[in-house]
Measured scan of single mutants.
Amino acid sequence: MSIQHFRVALIPFFAAFCLPVFAHPETLVKVKDAEDQLGARVGYIELDLNSGKILESFRPEERFPMMSTFKVLLCGAVLSRVDAGQEQLGRRIHYSQNDLVEYSPVTEKHLTDGMTVRELCSAAITMSDNTAANLLLTTIGGPKELTAFLHNMGDHVTRLDRWEPELNEAIPNDERDTTMPAAMATTLRKLLTGELLTLASRQQLIDWMEADKVAGPLLRSALPAGWFIADKSGAGERGSRGIIAALGPDGKPSRIVVIYTTGSQATMDERNRQIAEIGASLIKHW
Rank of each mutant, 00 (worst) to 15 (best):
N50M: 15
C75F: 02
L38K: 05
Y44T: 01
D250C: 15
G234Y: 01
A215M: 04
V42I: 10
G141I: 04
L218Y: 03
K71I: 01
S51A: 08
R159C: 07
I206R: 10
V258D: 03
L55Y: 11
W163A: 09
L282K: 03
L219Y: 04
L89H: 07
H151P: 04
S240F: 04
A77S: 11
K213N: 10
G76Q: 00
K30I: 10
G114F: 06
G279R: 02
H156W: 13
K190Q: 15
M127D: 08
T107P: 02
P143K: 04
L199F: 15
I229S: 00
S264D: 05
E145D: 11
F70W: 08
T193D: 12
A34Q: 07
S281W: 08
N173F: 14
D174S: 06
A77C: 14
T112E: 14
T178R: 02
L120Y: 00
K284C: 08
L89V: 07
N152K: 14
T131M: 05
G39W: 07
G226Q: 10
R118F: 13
G142L: 02
P25E: 15
R255K: 12
G90H: 14
L47H: 02
I125G: 00
V78Y: 00
Q274C: 12
E119P: 00
D269H: 13
I278Y: 03
F58H: 12
A170D: 07
T186W: 15
K32F: 08
H94A: 10
A148V: 11
G251R: 13
R273S: 12
L247E: 04
G216N: 10
L49K: 04
A200W: 08
D207W: 12
S281M: 12
M66P: 00
V31N: 00
N168E: 02
N130G: 03
A185S: 09
E102L: 13
L191A: 05
E61R: 13
D155C: 00
E119V: 00
H285D: 07
C121K: 00
I45L: 15
T267Q: 12
K213Q: 14
V101P: 02
K109Y: 12
V29I: 14
G239Q: 01
L55G: 06
A225Q: 12
N134R: 02
W208G: 02
V42L: 11
I140A: 07
D48W: 01
L136K: 04
T193H: 14
I206T: 11
G263M: 08
L188N: 04
R92G: 06
L28A: 10
G90C: 08
D250S: 14
G263Q: 08
Q88N: 14
R118L: 13
R118H: 13
A183I: 10
D83G: 06
D155I: 02
L223C: 10
I93P: 02
G279F: 05
P143Q: 07
T116Q: 09
F228L: 06
N130L: 02
T261P: 06
P60S: 15
H110C: 08
F58D: 01
E145I: 10
E237L: 14
R63H: 09
T262V: 12
A40K: 01
N130W: 00
T193Q: 15
D231H: 04
R92K: 15
R63M: 07
S233E: 00
L192F: 13
E237V: 10
W227L: 00
W286Q: 04
R271C: 11
T262G: 06
H156G: 12
G251D: 12
G242H: 01
N130Y: 02
V258Y: 04
A266Y: 12
P249F: 05
G85L: 09
R220T: 03
G239S: 05
S51T: 14
L79N: 03
Y260Q: 03
G142S: 07
L223H: 03
D33S: 12
L89I: 09
A276H: 12
P65F: 03
I93T: 05
V258R: 00
D33F: 09
A245E: 01
T116N: 09
G279P: 01
D161P: 00
R176W: 07
G242A: 10
A84Q: 14
Y260K: 01
G194M: 11
P60H: 15
D36N: 15
D33K: 12
R202P: 03
A123N: 04
T116C: 07
D177L: 00
S96Q: 14
L146K: 03
T126M: 09
Q97W: 12
K252L: 15
